[in-house]
Amino acid sequence: MDSEQFKKVLQSGSKEDKIIALESLSNSTNGEILQSIISIFDDEDIELRGEAFSTLLLNDNDISEVLLANLKSKSKNIRGYCALVLANRNDRVAVSEIIQLTEDSSAMVRSCAVGALGFLRAVEATSAIQKCLDDPNLEVKKSAIKSAIDIGDKSLLMRLENLTHDGDPEISSLLVIARNNL
């Protein structure tokens, strides 16, 4: 399928047609097609966003350049999901760019970015993760706690000792895990 055909499916195809098209493009190196797949991160349908994520994740080609470029997208969904795709592809080239996203204006992007850093076990991101521990957004804070646990940095884990659970059972559970890793 070429990029024009894919764009037509995205514009006027049924959900099933879009999913079939995405599945057929999991090894594309065509920049236009990759960009169209990434644009699906802004779709209202969570299933389509998930299919786009899977398509990019399963792509065996080096698509890092396209994903990295989209970390600067105007769309918060594209910035956040591209950070997660890069992390799930274990693309360590993206670490410094993802660190910058921990200061994004969107809490969703900050949460995705700090989570991606933990998934990548990016010890060089310790200070960014530490800042996110103080984020006013609960989801960002949860992602930062999980990342601190994933990285296993003792100074971060000790920092967690001073955090309160804010009445959130998930934070309480994560703090128990962190204490057990000290």
Rank of each mutant, 00 (worst) to 15 (best):
C112Y: 10
K72Q: 09
T55E: 05
V85R: 00
L22I: 04
Q100C: 03
I98F: 04
S39F: 03
E44P: 10
D42I: 02
D43K: 01
S26P: 08
Q100N: 09
D17T: 09
L25M: 01
K76Q: 13
L71V: 04
Q35L: 11
I78E: 03
S105N: 10
N70G: 02
L68G: 02
D60I: 12
I78L: 04
R92D: 12
V114G: 05
N27P: 10
I19L: 15
M108G: 13
L48G: 10
F41K: 03
A21T: 09
G80F: 05
C112P: 02
I98R: 00
V93G: 12
F53R: 06
R49Q: 15
N61C: 11
K18D: 11
N59Y: 07
V109N: 01
N59W: 06
I46C: 13
D91K: 11
D45K: 03
G31N: 14
L58G: 14
I33R: 02
C82F: 00
E47H: 11
E47Q: 13
S106Q: 00
G31E: 15
N61Q: 14
V85W: 07
I63T: 07
I63A: 00
V66Y: 07
C112R: 04
A69C: 09
A52E: 01
A52R: 02
T29W: 10
E44A: 15
L58M: 14
E23V: 12
S106I: 03
S106Y: 06
D43W: 10
V114P: 04
L71F: 00
S26L: 12
D91H: 04
L67N: 00
Y81S: 15
Q100A: 06
S28T: 13
A52F: 06
I40L: 14
L22Q: 06
S73W: 01
L84S: 06
A113Q: 07
N27D: 14
D62I: 02
L67W: 02
S73Y: 05
N61M: 08
V95T: 05
G115Q: 06
N61T: 05
D42V: 09
S39L: 00
Q100F: 03
D43H: 13
L22A: 04
M108Q: 12
V114C: 05
T55N: 05
S73R: 04
L25S: 04
S26I: 13
I40A: 04
S105P: 00
G80L: 00
S73N: 09
E44Y: 13
D60F: 11
N90G: 11
S54L: 12
C112G: 06
E32L: 07
S105Y: 03
G80N: 03
D43G: 06
R89G: 01
N59K: 07
N88V: 10
E97M: 10
E16V: 14
Q35F: 04
G50Q: 11
R92H: 15
S39Q: 09
G115A: 03
L101A: 00
I46E: 15
S26W: 14
L22W: 09
N70Y: 02
E23T: 15
E16W: 11
K18Y: 14
S36N: 08
E103M: 06
I46Y: 14
K72E: 05
T29H: 12
